[in-house]
Amino acid sequence: MLLSIALILILGMFMGWLCQKIKLPSLLGMLITGIVLGPYGLNLLDGSILGISADLRKIALIIILTRAGLGLDISGLKKIGRPAVLMCFVPASFELIGMILLAPKLMGLTTLEAAIMGAVLAAVSPAVVVPRMVKLMDEGYGVKEGIPQLILAGASVDDVYVIVLFSTFVGMMQGEGASVLKFVNIPISIFLGIAIGLVLGVLLAHYFKKVHIRDTSKLLIILSISFLLVVLEDKLTTAITFSSLIAIMFIGVGLQKRREVVAKRLSAKYGKLWVAAEVFLFVLVGATVNISYLGKVGAKALLVIVGALVFRMLGVFVCLLGTSLKRKERLFAMLAYTPKATVQAAIGGIPLALGFACGDTVLTVAVLAIVITAPLGAFAIDLSYKKWLSR
């Protein structure tokens, strides 16, 4: 395992640096590193690290979501109002509709199979989007208009909505039927996540005020609580649940509101943690990509992905109608909401594992979506934000 960790860090950072030098997103280099080192490439990664790959990727997401919460300006989000709520589910719904319309005609899938594939693809990647929106907030681009806050909050909730839809469609495929309670649980899990996160953030702020400990100890306490929240959500078997990832982000928000000075210091420490976490996240996402699948699909799969993305961008455009955002700012939001990676890597193989006839196709399209949209989406954000957003 030690050799695998060394290879991931050294080669991942080197390839990331190399891509930056030629004006490409660093995550592209990390994804390529994962593909080359992974089981479908040179197979140089130890089985033990691949076995805990999902947990390591989740830890990386926890780190960046907490940092996002520590720097999230809720007042800017409140100012946006209605579009902030719409961004949580409208773009994903538009993309799902696009997939249901396109996939049966182009790929010969049934409507339900197309819905499953649409649910896999409809999630935006917080791993790609969140760190970039945090960077925008740090540099002050689009903050006054609330653009990074809008995309940040929307991307976090978007995943909860899509995963519930995915589990519902899979249940229907297995003959369980659609559960109304699952759909009712979507807003409940989001609001419960926000409430739990804010309460914990305020309690931690009060504790840190009363008990003077090192910032590193504070960070370890917050990380431990975050891990416990994720485990608790996974263990819950009740019909009504909560979103642990949203709760984790709002711990940072609650702490920032009560102890802003501490939140800024902790944000800097989380930023240092992210340097290593980012490498692990994208290299291990790359390791899940089976390049051989890409040879099985032709232009039709590419057309389906591009067509669904057009629907998604249209959904973002609808969300932003009636706002004071300029044309370039709206276009930026539309592009920033396209990258796919983590959710597709996590659930893309489930239909195949369950023995669905569409499983191979769903996994192939999910892999192709990661390979295309993760680097291109990151590149579009990195290239355009200084030109299109006001500082």
Rank of each mutant, 00 (worst) to 15 (best):
A333D: 09
P91H: 03
L266P: 03
V90Q: 00
A345R: 11
T364Y: 14
L232T: 15
E113K: 04
A92E: 10
L232R: 13
N290E: 14
L198D: 00
L229C: 11
L7F: 06
V318R: 04
S189G: 01
L220P: 09
Q149L: 06
G252W: 15
V85Y: 13
T241L: 07
P351C: 05
E329N: 11
V367P: 02
F379K: 07
A345G: 08
S93G: 06
R391W: 09
K386H: 11
Y40E: 12
K340E: 02
L294A: 07
N43G: 05
V143I: 12
A92M: 12
S4W: 12
V160Q: 08
D73H: 07
A276G: 00
L101A: 08
M133K: 08
D158K: 01
A6V: 13
K328C: 09
L203A: 00
D55P: 06
I74K: 03
M13S: 04
T338Y: 10
I305F: 07
S267M: 07
V170S: 04
I100Y: 14
Y161Q: 01
A341Y: 08
V362R: 10
L352K: 12
L70V: 01
A68M: 15
F356W: 14
A369I: 03
A195H: 03
S189C: 02
V134C: 11
A122R: 02
V90Y: 01
F14D: 10
L136T: 06
K209Y: 14
V85E: 05
V316F: 03
G47N: 09
A336S: 11
